[in-house]
């Protein structure tokens, strides 16, 4: 366990997001368009790899490092509001021992969230709304989840699903292997934190200061708590939800009351099986309906079908009109 003492202080420049220290290696993307690495406990930089743009927190396997960068300047980079960056994203797979580039790819939107590595696949979200998935070894695309709403935060994996928070106010659950949309839960405001999945519950925080818990797989909202300011970070440990907001930290427990160390006030977490008790703005933000119509298709949810076939209004209207016509005709005939 760390005793808090400084082992090494390495002059690297400005960093965005955390570096990584695990095994015998440390890795850090820094602002000047490079990723550096070295041995744990040593201030020596063993390798340095130039990358395009500003890198965020890497994902690391035993022998690889995955770094997402946003092709903008350090001044133009904004972790707080990734959607404001009009920039492309790059994803680099580096050899952890020497920093050599194994493969790289790009996307239209900024990948401001850390990539997620799980079961031989790397999942990469971005402000263009897509989840791009690659084989960690070859860099070949495995599947893509197309979405209209921006997904600027890192996804999380649990129970065979990938959870990603959208700017359209929905928490998406996607099958990790197939990329099929399993379900989505209405959060009601742009999600501002990485989702956290623990013991069948996914937690998210929003720009409007709401902290919410959902069942896995697009399930019901279990509870919601209204904080005083935009939620910036979320951690779950030992049955406690710890949220950092622009106004202070909140620790949400299992009981009815919670503590805020911002001003010492005691506030209450609200069970929200009854949505009427939820005050977080229960409506999706603009574009939610449109997104739903495009994502949910007639035969699959991959979004590649013509809109006319993917619009339930057309299909149900046809069914009901036939039914009304049949009833009316038979009634006239008296059969």
């Amino acid at each position: 366990m760390s005793d808090g003492s400084t082992v090494a202080k390495i002059p690297l420049g400005q960093g965005y997001g955390l570096g990584y220290d695990g095994g015998n290696q440390w890795v850090a993307p820094v602002s000047e368009g490079r990723v550096v690495g070295g041995e744990t406990g040593s201030a020596d930089i063993n390798w340095e790899t130039p990358v395009e743009g500003v890198g965020v927190r890497p994902a690391v396997t035993e022998d690889q490092v995955f770094v997402s960068t946003v092709t903008t300047s350090p001044e133009g980079f904004s972790l707080e509001d990734p959607t404001s960056m009009d920039a492309e994203g790059q994803l680099y797979a580096l050899d952890i021992t020497d920093g050599s580039v194994l493969w790289e790819t790009s996307r239209n939107g900024a990948g401001a969230g850390a990539p997620l590595v799980q079961n031989g696949l790397v999942y990469w979200t971005g402000t263009d709304g897509d989840i791009l998935v690659y084989d960690v070894e070859t860099g070949e695309s495995t599947w893509e989840f197309k979405n209209d709403a921006s997904l600027p935060r890192s996804p999380v994996a649990a129970s065979g699903n990938i959870f990603a928070g959208g700017q359209d106010g929905y928490l998406y659950a996607i099958d990790a292997r197939s990329g099929e949309l399993v379900g989505r839960s209405l959060v009601g405001a742009p999600i501002s934190t990485n989702p956290v999945a623990v013991d069948g519950v996914v937690y998210v925080g929003t720009d409007e200061g709401s902290i919410q818990a959902f069942e896995y797989g697009g399930g019901e909202r279990l509870w919601a708590f209204e904080a005083d300011a935009s939620v910036r970070s979320l951690t779950v440990s030992n049955g406690l939800v710890i949220a950092g907001t622009a106004a202070g930290y909140y620790v949400l427990g299992d009981g009815e009351s919670v503590e805020s160390d911002g001003d010492g006030d005691t506030t209450t977490r609200t069970e929200t099986d009854d949505d009427e008790s939820w005050s977080g703005g229960g409506e999706p933000v603009a574009g939610g309906d449109e997104a739903a119509m495009r994502q949910r298709g007639l035969f699959s949810n991959d979004g590649d079908e013509p809109d006319a076939l993917s619009n339930p209004f057309n299909l149900t209207t046809l069914g009901f009109l036939l039914s009304v016509a049949g009833i009316t005709y038979q009634m006239f005939q008296g059969r």
Binding site: Y170, R184, S185, L186, D275, G282, E283, P284, G288, D289, E290, A292, M293, R296, N311, P312, F313, T316, T317, G319, F320, S323, V324
Partner: peptide, 20 residues
Amino acid sequence: VRSPNVPSEAGLPFIGFGGF
């Protein structure tokens, strides 16, 4: 009003049929 899984106009045929 509030189903997140379908566009809102998808409810109109149901309302129309119920009214019929």
